[in-house]
Design a protein around this nucleic acid. Structure first.
Length: 549
RNA sequence: GGCCCGUUGGUCAAGAGGCCUAAGACACCGCCCUUUCACGGCGGUAACACGAGUUCGAAUCUCGUACGGGUCACCA
């Protein structure tokens, strides 16, 4: 028996399977030509982050566009950083944003698919089987260095201005013998398994990134860690094994991984795996002071996707906005296909930006206003109450105490050919329609400077005589026009503009008076509709109060 | 610092040697429409980081500089 094989048995005595076992267990997928198998592999270290949502979206539409598969995999190899409920938060969050998952974790607790388990902490035996094979082939070895020793090596390298890391002559245990290893093991010394890298820094590894194009980097010569001392793999190793066994065709992830690609390619080749295609997604940036930087969980509220729910953004609006960042041709497509789902958009990785986009909250607002404007009053009622139930129970109780009235309020200037585009998110609704609810209404009969108080009062008196809650828009305005001349106001705006000295104002000014009396504001949606919804009693009462001053 | 990547108006971006006197969207400004405000329509301000080179011709190719970003763990 060779030393390598003895070493492998010494290090991993309980592993009795061989890679062949798993190769047979997870056969190639039966998919049509061109179908892409992609995944998002979050680590449950916190809540769903905007960047993860974005990467998931890009993966999702890539799978959809190619008739492929999108799966999730939980990368929980770092138990120290794990957060309770993290899986549920992330996977559940994706679901709430309408990102459908074909395979892997489909909720916080359920997984489906033939290539699982989809959680790295449950795949230890698989990883160890492959590591054992690498050791047998002399491509991996145990390293007994302590954190202190590694630190000392680093300091020495820095002092000598040499490239830091565990490589070449600095790789202390690279040529450890079976006997030496056995002795240390018998002493109970912990160890990690490192790759015995055959790479040479002077060689170049070239790969074609589906987003960034051709990238050339020095070959990896670092004997990086494959298996940590707890027997769990590092990201690099788990990535190679999992994406091979799960038959991922395109690895699409954040571009912070680019610098690790030489390690990954080396691993795939050494293991005899087909190297997948890589697509590195640029991060969403944020302006901080004058500097652009990657959006950060710690500093930016909008980094946590939960922020958007609290603000009352529809998840569809956030997705729609993210699509405009993801694909430069998406907005053109949207104009041509206003009613289609973004899922019908033919996504092309080539249309992704090579550099990171600044998160533009103003643009999100615009996108969102357009989305909201397309909703019916019933839909708005559903969304607003769902939002208020969680974030504004007072408002929720008022809305649901009289659903028909609430819906009528939301129907104002809505269920019409050209709906208004005023509301972007649900937390604006209460303020926007505050005058429609007695609980929130604040009377304020402050008139514009060009209208005399006396005229306003006289107008309101005259108007309350002829007012009828049954009036349609035309009749409603005609009544104002009829009163206008009696107060020396022009009935028609054009008359007034042609001869402004002859009048005190025009009918439009009088409607403003009425508007202020009814709503306490100068600007509102259609006043006639507002008065119809408010009803006769309230209108008359508010007019009366205004007259009284 | 080493190694990668990037740099077109305030923002997102089109652009792959002549079609660029550089598209479109958001934002901003003006006008029109209009009972207010929105909507809508029309118009406007505003950009190829800098310097060399290749070429008849460069936003597009090459090199350098500057600036920005990423990465250098038993974290992902």
């Amino acid at each position: 028996m060779s030393d390598n094989i003895k070493l492998a048995d010494l290090l991993l005595p309980n592993i009795d399977k061989t890679p062949d076992y798993y190769e047979n267990l997870y056969p190639a997928r039966n998919l049509p030509e061109g179908a892409r198998v992609v995944r998002v592999a979050p680590s449950p270290t916190g809540y769903l982050h905007l960047g993860v949502l974005f990467a998931s979206l890009v993966n999702r539409i890539t799978a959809t566009s190619s008739g492929g598969v999108f799966f999730t995999r939980i990368e929980d190899t770092d138990k120290k950083r794990e957060v309770e409920g993290g899986i549920e938060d992330i996977i559940g969050g994706l679901a709430r944003f309408g990102i459908t998952i074909d395979e892997g974790f489909i909720s916080g607790t359920e997984q489906k698919g033939d290539y699982g388990p989809y959680q790295q902490s449950h795949r230890a035996e698989i990883y160890q089987t492959y590591v054992k094979e690498l050791i047998r082939q002399g491509l991996a070895y145990p390293c007994f260095c302590t954190a202190e020793e590694l630190e000392a090596t680093r300091n020495e390298q820095e002092a000598k201005k040499i490239r830091t890391g565990y490589h070449g002559e600095w790789a202390k245990h690279r040529n450890i013998t079976f006997e030496e290893a056995k002795k240390l093991i018998d002493e109970g010394k912990p160890f990690v398994v490192r790759l015995k890298s055959p790479g040479n820094e002077d060689n170049k590894v070239v790969f074609e990134d589906a987003i960034k194009g051709k990238i050339e980097m020095p070959e990896n010569d670092e004997d990086f860690v494959l298996l940590k001392s707890d027997g769990i793999p590092t990201y690099h190793f788990a990535h190679a094994i999992d994406d091979h066994l799960m038959h991922t065709t395109h690895v699409m992830r954040g571009d912070e991984w680019i610098s690790s690609v030489p390690k990954h390619i080396q691993l795939f080749r050494l293991l005899g795996f087909k190297v997948p295609k890589f697509a590195h997604i640029s991060p969403i940036m944020k302006l901080d002071g004058g500097a652009k930087r990657k959006i950060s969980k710690r500093k930016d509220p909008e980094a946590a996707v939960h922020f958007f729910a609290e603000e009352g953004f529809m998840s569809e609006s956030v997705i729609e906005y993210l699509m405009t960042i993801a694909a430069s041709d998406f907005e053109d497509w949207r104009r041509a296909n206003p009613d289609k789902s973004y899922k019908d958009f033919k996504f092309n990785l080539k249309k992704m930006s090579v550099s990171g986009a600044l998160f533009d909250g103003v643009k999100l607002l615009d996108v969102s206003k357009n989305m909201v404007s397309r909703l019916s009053s019933g839909q708005v009622y559903g969304f607003v109450t769902a939002w208020a139930k969680e974030f504004d129970t007072d408002f929720y109780n008022i809305l649901t105490s009289n659903p028909e009235y609430s819906k009528a309020v939301f129907a104002i200037d809505r269920d019409v050919p050209k709906p208004r585009k005023d509301i972007a998110k649900w937390n604006e609704v209460k303020e926007y329609f505050s005058y429609m609810f007695e609980e929130y209404y604040t009377p304020d009969f402050t008139l514009p400077e060009n209208i005399a108080k006396e005229d306003a009062v006289n107008f309101l008196k005259a108007y309350s005589e002829v007012y009828s809650p049954e009036d349609d828009k035309q009749t409603w305005f005609n009544k104002i026009k009829e009163i206008a001349p009696t107060l020396n106001f022009a009935s028609e705006t054009k008359e007034y503009k042609a001869n402004p000295e002859a009048y005190k104002g025009h009918a439009g000014d009088l409607s403003t008076v009425l508007r202020i009396a009814i709503t306490g504001r100068r600007n509102t949606p259609d006043l006639c509709s507002i008065m119809q919804v408010l009803g006769k009693d309230k209108c008359l009462e508010r007019i009366k109060n205004a007259i009284r001053g």
